[in-house]
Design a protein around this nucleic acid. Structure first.
Lengths: 165, 165
DNA sequence: GGCAAAAACAGTATAATGTAACAAAATGGG
DNA sequence: CCCATTTTGTTACATTATACTGTTTTTGCC
């Protein structure tokens, strides 16, 4: 089981998350011959500002302060498309928002846990889920190619505050 | 394992799907004291026209022919909200579209298989997936409340036509 | 049936998200 | 340096969804 829930849901030095994500992104892009331009890196950086999914227009609003250049929707969406293609971010369909992938490059199925109280999202990859899904879909005659699993609930912190034990 | 993939992905008498869905809807609503008005029933009927998720504006376009009255976005969305609340339909977030729930009322986790070739969607519920998800999320300290699982791939029919074996 | 309260519906306007199309600028290889 | 390619800027617009106001319909109660 691979997850970034420890970091996402607990106090941590978030700067290390950011640094690690940007380092991995630079490495992966240079390996792939993909160009992580300043704009794309700035968008990735903004998405990694927190562990909460960020919308495209929020990115557009934040970019000027981060880069000094204003950015309109198509520019932002192009960067998002690039980052999605490289597997550096994920789209959270139920929120129309985007979140940094904590383990890009490694072959993994994405499963996103979203706290309905604080909005924090963590990613998790587990063979047990993969095999259960492969098994049942195969039995249904369906050839599964990609998964989009978004789970809503309460993170450890918000569960304690008046939530269920 | 509970699924409507047999019907959705193979030749079948679809009128029976529609009739069964509407019957179940009427039963459930009368049990719940919810009012399945003509408009709401018409929207549900339209969504059940096929096993392909249908968008809200497509519903709005189709309603006049189906009911004789024109319907604007807010009207459609209100009916959709009602049907979602009753568990009679599901929202497919990755498509911004809505699909009829083949087994409403029964407590089940929803898992939607979407064929990327023909757009047909089937629903599946399996304890093995539920328990795998419960297990891994619990280990991550996350209290899962609702699931949104959308799987993209190829249905039995489209897999045969030039797709993978 | 008549009436008050609640629910459902209609309509206008607008917000939020996303894309098409084309122009301008930057990049990198000859 | 020059050209082809890629990236970014800009305008316009498409799609999805909601806030809000007022009207109609339904419901429960007498």
């Amino acid at each position: 089981m691979l997850t970034n829930s420890r970091a996402a849901y607990h106090d941590h030095n978030h700067q290390r998350c950011i640094d690690a994500a940007l380092d991995r992104a630079r490495d992966l892009c240079s390996q792939q011959g993909a160009r992580l331009t300043p704009l794309r890196e700035a968008v990735l950086h903004l998405i990694w500002t927190s562990h909460r999914p960020l919308g495209a227009y929020a990115i557009a609003d934040l970019l000027p302060a981060a880069t000094g250049r204003k950015a309109l929707a198509p520019t932002v969406y192009r960067s998002i498309e690039f980052l999605l293609d490289q597997g550096l971010i994920h789209r959270v369909a139920s929120l129309n928002a985007y979140i940094g992938c904590p383990f890009p490059g490694s072959r993994h199925s994405e499963l996103i846990m979203i706290c309905r109280a604080c909005g924090t999202a963590a990613e998790l990859s587990a063979d047990s889920v993969d095999s259960a899904l492969s098994d049942v879909t195969r039995r249904a005659g369906f050839f599964m190619e990609t998964q989009n699993i978004e789970l809503l609930g309460l993170c450890p912190g918000c569960r304690g505050e008046g939530g269920p034990s």
